[in-house]
Design a protein around this nucleic acid. Structure first.
Lengths: 214, 214
DNA sequence: TAGATTGTTAATCGATTAACAATC
DNA sequence: TAGATTGTTAATCGATTAACAATC
């Protein structure tokens, strides 16, 4: 078990993917897995997987591999999935609706506990038994509800404004679905989940794959 | 104007983000922008931006910067946004619905032209004037409709199966929203857009930011 | 014991950044 | 001309991979 050494973001982003595959193994009653096997499933170098995990502790057994259940537990601890994180969502449009309903998937780790919208049409309506609140209730709700993560599903033009309000309310992390680059203070982390960027970069590879002029 | 040199994925993924910021500048009638200014907006090193763009041509003017309109045009060409790409979506659930309605945003670059679902409840229903088709129509529809990109919004357990059918149908790129790692043949590119992974990695940074044990 | 596989150090590879001549 | 900023080469930094002693 070692600490110090800042862990790179690339490593942290791979952990949830490891968890995905491990959960799938668990559901098939696989007891033990080697970095070799994980590497095959993830199309990742086995050494990388071992190294990633070793940042956080010695989770494997030499000559044997990793106990699936134990490793899941450990990664869940690292990602703090034992505690419930409360999440606020701003933007009760189609995507906002979809995410709220997806809610169940994350079970008790992450829970959308408040929904906001600027539009009077939306305010007061109910999504998944949550009432859509007006924006001026955001700060108070976030503070009182111990909400630490904010999700933005508003149009790009309003995203920065919402981010500012989240920061002001003391949120610690933002997941932004709007196709916009956001500014925040240093202590608030922003992750981007805009799928249009993904789609556009995918387009680049269309037709060209394998035609790499060489 | 130079060719050869394979362009790294990191570069390609930044292009849509550049486009985002450039479009925003255009909407504010900004004519010219320097790599310095772009760097500030994107929190990226100016040298990196210049280098990224230089892979594709000489788009700037020394001493002046980049013409916003011209650069937008060039990046759109690189990402092949001049041609319309037809997209098929499998999974007419909440997220599928949301993406279909989002459709307008992508304007004429990307167009969801077919929706599929395995569930008899969904088949035959209409989303945004498109009728949800059964899975056995996928191959034929993809081929006849010149569909080159597939979007997966089914549960994780079915994602691989859908991907296989896409590959079989000759799709060239897949955008996967299911929390699952997918296998495909080498010539089919898979991008991941599962937001749960994003959320989980965000959780890692909660409470720790700035407490980096040093 | 022999075979397998970890954790970790060292080597490699690739991506980011700095620096600067060219030039608007 | 002087100041600004590109495109590009060289230097740096960090992440991935290989290799191997430790050990189950």
């Amino acid at each position: 078990m070692k600490m110090s050494k800042t862990i790179s973001e690339a490593v942290v982003r791979r952990l949830p993917v490891y968890l995905q595959v491990l959960n799938e193994l668990l559901s098939r009653d696989v007891q033990t897995v080697s970095s070799q096997e994980l590497g095959m499933k993830l199309e990742l170098n086995p050494a990388q997987i071992r190294k990633d995990l070793a940042y956080f502790g010695e989770f494997g057994r030499k000559g044997i591999g990793y106990d699936v259940t134990y490793l899941i537990e450990k990664i869940r601890q690292i990602l703090k999935l034992d505690q419930t994180l409360n999440v606020a969502l701003v933007g009760a449009g189609n995507l906002g609706h979809a995410l709220c309903n997806y809610n169940t998937y994350l079970k008790d780790n992450m829970k959308i506990t408040a929904i906001f919208d600027a539009s009077p049409d939306k305010i007061g309506t109910t999504i998944n038994s949550l009432t859509v609140l007006p924006m001026d209730k955001l700060k108070e709700t976030v503070e009182q509800g111990h909400i630490r993560i904010g999700i933005i599903t508003v149009p790009a033009s309003e995203a920065q404004n919402v981010a500012d309000q989240f920061v002001e309310a003391g949120i610690e992390g933002i997941l932004n679905f709007a196709p916009a680059v956001l500014k925040s203070t240093e202590d608030v982390r922003i992750h981007y989940a805009d799928f249009t960027t993904q789609l556009l970069s995918l387009a680049y590879y269309m037709d060209r794959e394998g035609t790499e002029y060489e």
